[in-house]
Write a protein that binds this DNA or RNA. Sequence first.
DNA 1: ACTCATACTTACACAACTGTTAGTATCCTA
DNA 2: TAGGATACTAACAGTTGTGTAAGTATGAGT
Lengths: 118, 118
Amino acid sequence: MSKIKENSTHQANKNSLGEICAEVYAINLLSGQWTLAICCHLFEGRLRFGELKKRIPQITERMLTLQLRKMEEDGLVTRTVYPEVPPRVEYELTESTHELKPIFQQLQAWGDRHKARL
Amino acid sequence: MSKIKENSTHQANKNSLGEICAEVYAINLLSGQWTLAICCHLFEGRLRFGELKKRIPQITERMLTLQLRKMEEDGLVTRTVYPEVPPRVEYELTESTHELKPIFQQLQAWGDRHKARL
DNA sequence: ACTCATACTTACACAACTGTTAGTATCCTA
DNA sequence: TAGGATACTAACAGTTGTGTAAGTATGAGT
């Protein structure tokens, strides 16, 4: 993404809320535009960069790279580079992220119910 | 917030993902900077604008107003205005939002575990 | 020598979100 | 007549997130 200014009020508020509330922290990790979509495709198993790109046609290479890098930094995915040419890079969810699956299912169910009520 | 340009690529992507995936839709509703904090305080019961402000000292009046308005629009809170002077306005979570409580608890537990692993 | 495939990176512009400061309306009380 | 209380609103600026377009390195295959 763009460089983050750690001394901005915005960032300071975000950080302090995330430190106090673990649920805020969790939502912060998941609120990237493409994060959930990537997770959903990786629930099935590890995928290469290009395979993810094909499964999420609307995403640009730039955003896919940025999101995966952030997810790696946040401990949501692991990145494995195979020293081949042309390069091969595989992404896989961490244990931690797999544990989110039941929560996602509940969020999905809630989302459907909530949509229906509006 | 600022006016949203519905014809932007960004917004189009967000919308289409939210329509396909109910969990993306759900996260989109909850990803405002102060949304979860407000929810947490309202889980205990209805509160006035000023009471929320006191409980979330870092928030500005502007952001509190904007977030509550968006949450109202999204069906997360109800807003009741009492025709008094000085004005009294109370906010309360909708049924739908109360149903999120167990999911929040799981997210919180996950967040704590995940933090510990990093 | 030239193309191809893959997984990026860079530079730029725009969109969306948040923060700062100052102001508003209303009636009640002193 | 002035000040206080409440729940806002407006104008502006800054920060963060996203999209567009173009370019990079590498070795294998032709």
